[in-house]
Nucleic acid binder design. Structure first.
Lengths: 355, 355
DNA sequence: CTGAAAGCGCTTACAG
DNA sequence: CTGAAAGCGCTTACAG
């Protein structure tokens, strides 16, 4: 009677077996491979299971089959529309193949990331998807020794751990600033979180700087306001600071569409005309970007597709097939020019590099 | 050389025990209750565990301890900023108390909901949080027999299953329309998903209708464009349809801020002045609402707080304490008037009803 | 402070 | 087509 006090015991396969008058493994078989069971027995087991509202204990099943049936995804933040789309893509494709998705949200924290990775590994996932890489040697070491398939996404590492489905953040930063340069801007700023907590943002900043340098333009217009994930208010404050210190700035590339929205707002407040006085570009092509006034130039990422392909790679790898797409996919991105950089109609610029 | 036969065996506590020269349960004890182990032994075990990069199998642990260590949340959509905040609140508080969160995204589908509930139950969660209720008798039945603590959130049921932390969607709908009536509007429309897939939205619509009826105003201005979750484009289309069919409409309550943004956009395109010709109200007070032009009147919900309180209730319930807050909390909501309903400065109206 | 035994609820070979 | 045995990797009492 020890453990009965606190908690009602769950229905187990033994209960079902007894009610149906069969053995344990006939119950298991009926649920997993009904075609190997005679119709009469099957019917009896199924009705017993239904009557008892039997829900098999997945943990017990995983333990004995040594297959957890789930895939883990580690991401910097759920408050990011793009990452969420990737999660959707993963989730949809994985579910169609019988896997469940375990989500680990790191809140852009290196410590959280390590702790979460450890906990996810403890659930013995059959594969791990990384949305934008591991940020500490400890985490990298832990994963390296875990002997589990890994798909990195949302970036394009020089030295991939295993599989990759992504695009180059550096290229995004460079392409956006190149396009601003082409439009004749010469005093172009960057507004994003500085520092090591958002490696992807840092990559874009490096791309931005590279573009400026190869055009021989000044590269000192940037602010260190806010940290990832950059929100609207960071855009307001960052714009305020930049407009004070660099009144000559004529274009600004932002860390995200959120930030860009804050910048738009601050410009309106100060009577700074967009795009005439200041051209503004975001990142992520959030839902609202094209409905703002002025509509916002941004970078569209293949977010859902990333999740979908990553899931396909995983399914193929686990089942031992040759990876369905190539195990290293660079999906590219699109720059969408809208009113905030002086385009009347939205115009598509495309960029992608197959591996 | 692919992947070492099918799968490299994981490191188990037995491996650690051997390396440290102790028994299995000394390893377990060192990890769970280090204070009961002698410092010397502890050190040996810890260093062995570190050397092997040992990550305990949580499924095995759950099975033998009969405590899964996780709590499940079932929600209509992750693409909803408010629900995401609730998830954050749950996740933060639960983590502080040693529980992990399992997320089930139903995509606003009744079938998905049932299937997900079954799968979550299969992981033997120690409690379940429902963001806005179960939509099928089958799901209700399944949960009722599962003998697991349940917290319903984001609504205010007449007949609660167990615990509740929420607010009345009906009251929200009524309060918003009442406030539009107070401002002198008489031809007030509603733009939301009709039908059974979004019970919360339907509740708000009923509240809206009740407000109109008790004021003796007409209640026929509504559209059936789109379905939950209503997106920006549904707002564009819905507004277009409503403005065609009811050109006399002078105010519009929308299903969400997303929808309202689409409405704003369509009004701009048609030269319909907001708020002079048409007052517009949203729902959810999304990040961007106050940064739009005109800024958007909306309803602010205690999203994060809901998650936090729900988690506290769960922790208390599991540990057998009296529920820390009352087990039925009505947290109320706030209507925030902004420019889209003719307010120059944002003005707070408050509404809440303690149980 | 440490360990041998039993068991959590399933599934995987293997017999029949 | 069906079942008795062994075991997945831990933890929970219980001895010592």
């Amino acid at each position: 009677m020890s453990r009965k006090a606190s908690k009602a015991r769950s229905i187990t396969s033994r209960d079902v077996a007894e009610l149906a008058g069969v053995s344990l493994m006939t119950v298991s078989r009926t649920l997993r491979t009904p075609e190997l069971v005679s119709p009469a027995t099957r019917k009896r087991v199924e009705s017993a299971a239904r009557k008892l509202n039997y829900v098999p204990d997945l943990a017990a099943g995983s333990l004995s089959s040594q297959r957890s049936g789930h895939v883990a995804v580690l991401l910097p933040s759920l408050r990011h529309a793009g990452f969420l789309r990737t999660v959707d893509g993963l989730s949809d494709t994985l579910r169609d193949n019988g896997y469940h998705l375990l989500i680990g949200d790191c809140y852009y924290s290196v410590d959280q990331q390590l702790e979460l990775l450890r906990m996810l590994l403890g659930r013995r996932p059959e594969a791990i998807v990384l949305i934008s890489g591991l940020d500490s040697p400890a985490a990298q070491d832990l994963l390296a020794r875990a002997a589990v398939p890994v798909v990195e996404t949302w970036h394009w590492p020089d030295d991939p751990h295993n599989m990759v489905v992504g695009f180059s953040q550096f290229d995004v930063g460079r392409a956006m600033t190149d396009s601003l340069i082409e439009k004749g801007h010469t005093r172009i700023g960057f507004l994003g979180a500085l520092g090591p907590f958002d490696p992807n943002g840092e990559q874009r900043r490096q791309g931005h700087l590279a573009a400026l340098r190869s055009a021989g333009l000044r590269d000192d217009i940037q602010s260190s306001v806010g940290k990832a994930p950059m929100e609207i208010e960071d855009g307001v404050k960052g714009a305020s600071w930049l407009l004070e210190h660099f009144p000559e700035m004529d274009a600004l590339a932002c860390a995200s569409d959120m930030t860009a929205l804050g910048v738009l707002h601050e410009c309106r407040r100060r009577g700074c005309a967009v795009p005439e006085q200041l051209a503004i570009a975001g990142f992520g092509d959030f839902d609202f970007a094209q409905y703002l006034q002025p509509s916002l130039t941004s970078v569209r990422l293949p977010s859902y597709r990333i999740g979908q392909l990553a899931a396909q790679l995983i399914v193929a790898t686990i089942s031992g097939e040759a990876p369905s797409p190539a195990p290293h996919c660079n999906l590219g991105f699109e720059i969408i020019h809208r009113q905030s950089t002086g385009n009347h109609d939205s115009l598509l610029s495309y960029s992608s590099s197959a591996p």
